[in-house]
Simulated scan of single mutants.
Amino acid sequence: MSRHEEGKAELIRLYLERRADLVRFFTVRLRSVAAAEDLVQDIYVRLSCLENSGEIQNPMAYIYRLGSNLMLDRLRGDRRTAQRDGVWLDSQTMRVGGEEISSEPSAEATVAARQRLALLAAAIEELSPQTQRVFRMHKFEGLSHPEVAVALGISRSAVEKHMMAALKHLLDRLP
């Protein structure tokens, strides 16, 4: 076994021996057992991938320093994430007089929209079956007039006439 392999094996042996101590140590600092467990697992991953461990004078100090560095990196990343999310939230939030205004429609607006939708659906049901098909294919499915004509086996002119009839009817029926 090479000196590097011996050093790495010694670090991992110490890690395994002191794993519970490491979890307690980082739980106090992170105020979370789950975060400490994740961090201690990251320490193991780093130790198992270590390239040059032959020069380490104090292996336990090295393990704790490695954990502290990983913890600081994680805390900085969390801080950056919180800051970025805060900036995004501020850009997406309307405020009036320091009070946050909901971007959701009011209950009245929601009820009114549902009522308009019900009126629209009822008005569409009053159309002839062929005009309904033309209207739905063009407006809801996004097909062009020529595409509707081909799909229904009618002329483009017929599609345009059905659309004009549908739109006129909807304008007459809807407030």
Rank of each mutant, 00 (worst) to 15 (best):
S2D: 14
S2V: 05
H4G: 08
E5L: 14
E5D: 13
K8W: 00
K8E: 01
E10M: 11
I12H: 01
R13C: 07
Y15E: 00
Y15N: 00
Y15F: 10
E17G: 03
A20Y: 09
D21W: 09
L22G: 00
R24H: 06
R24M: 04
R24S: 06
F25M: 07
F26P: 01
F26K: 02
R29Q: 12
L30H: 01
S32K: 03
A34N: 08
A35K: 08
A36C: 03
V40I: 06
Q41V: 05
V45L: 13
V45A: 10
R46W: 05
S48A: 15
E51R: 15
N52S: 14
S53Q: 02
G54Q: 06
E55C: 07
E55F: 10
Q57N: 05
Y62W: 04
Y64N: 04
Y64D: 02
R65P: 00
S68R: 12
S68E: 11
D73G: 15
R74H: 10
L75C: 05
R80W: 08
T81D: 12
T81P: 03
A82I: 08
A82W: 09
L89I: 11
D90K: 14
S91Q: 14
Q92G: 07
T93Y: 07
T93Q: 12
I101Q: 13
S103L: 15
S103K: 15
E104C: 09
T110M: 13
V111K: 13
R114C: 14
Q115W: 11
L117C: 12
L117S: 14
L119T: 12
L119R: 15
I124V: 15
T131A: 15
Q132A: 08
R133F: 06
R133L: 14
F135T: 09
F135D: 03
F135C: 07
F135P: 00
F135R: 04
F135E: 04
F135G: 03
M137H: 07
K139Y: 12
K139V: 08
E141K: 11
E141S: 09
G142V: 01
L143V: 04
E147N: 05
V148S: 02
V150M: 11
A151R: 15
G153E: 10
I154M: 11
I154L: 07
S155E: 08
S157I: 08
A158T: 09
A158G: 03
V159C: 02
V159Y: 02
E160Q: 14
H162Y: 09
M163K: 11
A166F: 04
L167D: 08
H169S: 11
L170K: 00
L171V: 11
L171C: 10
R173D: 02
R173H: 05
L174D: 00
L174V: 01
P175C: 07
P175I: 09
P175Y: 06
